[in-house]
Write a protein that binds this DNA or RNA. Structure first.
Lengths: 140, 140
DNA sequence: CTATAATACTTGTAATTTGCAACTATTAAC
DNA sequence: GTTAATAGTTGCAAATTACAAGTATTATAG
């Protein structure tokens, strides 16, 4: 059950990344999402959250910068660190992906009644919290 | 919320693939899982379920065969088709991954009470069913 | 205050994965 | 019986990734 759900969300993620004009990969969409969410994140920070090697991540950021979706600014407090942020274009792409995701989820939830919808959303929230508590995996 | 959950399950999938002896990739684990689940599946069938190109899939199966996890037998009814199955070793790896997954999920669910647990599981089931109904994505 | 260690990030290189186009082999359709 | 469709493979080029080794900066220890 969880296998199937994970796979479906993976597919969904892929589909939602082709936003008409500029296509990005699912990994890139997660990077954009997470940069947007965090407050002045460093490379290390985002890489760790996403569970990718810093070396791989470095190059991914490089391509996102050449795509003009991400900015990388040296941190004045610690000059080893770079602070990441989204460009206007990056924000736009991120929100396009978000919209596609939401449209899909709305469609999925349309097959449920009000009560089911609320139950499912509460359940996912609960599941996320429990996963965050778990030591085995998903450490933030 | 869904982004985070998806990412966590992705990470979990990665972690569960390193089964001590022989490591496999998350994609390979999904292939093994799906071959085990379907009845005498063809290449095309599994590739479609997993949403991978048949050309990529062909090569993935090749490596799984050299790893001695998968068998590929020509279908006598249609000689264009190959029927896939797991070797004893493949079954063993698949069940090891499954066990690791289950152990993790058990740990996650240990942070909930009986009622919450049941609600979450019912919700995931419901969500899966609704996704299956959806035309936008996740067509089987 | 200086030498050493640790941190943040980048680059070289080699291996793996992937996607497109073109291919073979077999079956279906007209 | 020719043509079209289906199942799968391979060549090749591009993208992704991982390890090791590198630079630059900051923290630590004596």
């Amino acid at each position: 059950m969880f296998q199937i759900m994970t796979r479906r969300f993976g597919l969904l993620n892929k589909v939602c990344c082709s936003t008409g004009g500029l296509d990005i990969t699912p990994i890139q969409s997660h990077i954009l999402y997470e940069i947007d969410k965090q407050h002045n994140p460093s490379m290390q920070q985002i890489a760790e959250i996403l569970g990718t090697e810093i070396t791989t991540f470095s190059r991914q950021i490089q391509t996102l910068i050449t795509m003009n979706l991400v900015r990388k600014v040296s941190d004045p407090n610690d000059r080893r660190v770079y602070v990441l942020s989204l460009t206007a274009e990056g924000k736009q792409i991120a929100s396009q992906v978000d919209h596609k995701m939401n449209a899909f989820l709305t469609e999925v939830f349309s097959h449920m009644n009000e009560f089911e919808r609320e139950t499912v959303i509460r359940s996912i929230k609960l599941l996320n919290e429990s996963m965050a508590k778990s030591k085995t995996c998903c450490s933030q």
